[in-house]
Amino acid sequence: MASTGRPLSPHLGIYRWQAQMVSSILHRATGIALAAGSLLVVAGLLTLAAGPAPFAAFGAFCASPPGRLLLLGWTWALAYHLLNGVRHLLQDAGLGHAVTAFVRNSWLAVIGSLLLTVLVWAWVLSGGGA
């Protein structure tokens, strides 16, 4: 690219990674993951309506290693999308636009989501499993 000295539009190959990019990309990625995860909600409700045997099969899938892994991933995706969504709503209200606040709140969403995930799964596992 010719060096014109002009500001460049955001381009992944040029820009250094920063919290602003990571939080934005993660919000979209977790949103897509949660949209796919909504199928599990459908499966849970449909099997619960269908009867004890189908619901037991659904429970067995959730308790299986791949089921557990999916649930763990969706727990974090939901926690992050929720916290970062609050950040976006606050920004829509005109709050937290200063660079320092933006970076701090991005990290709050990332770290908070990990914390929430640990809390949820500590609760699940301490209760003897799903």
Partner: peptide
């Protein structure tokens, strides 16, 4: 934004309900 606001309430409600039922059987759920 409106649906996000609604999910801000309904999402945590769903998680708490699901966690409460995670050790429950068919009948209780």
């Amino acid at each position: 934004r409106l649906t996000a606001l609604a999910l801000l309430v309904l999402g945590p409600w769903f998680v708490v309900l699901t966690l409460g039922l995670s050790h429950a059987g068919y009948a209780e759920a």
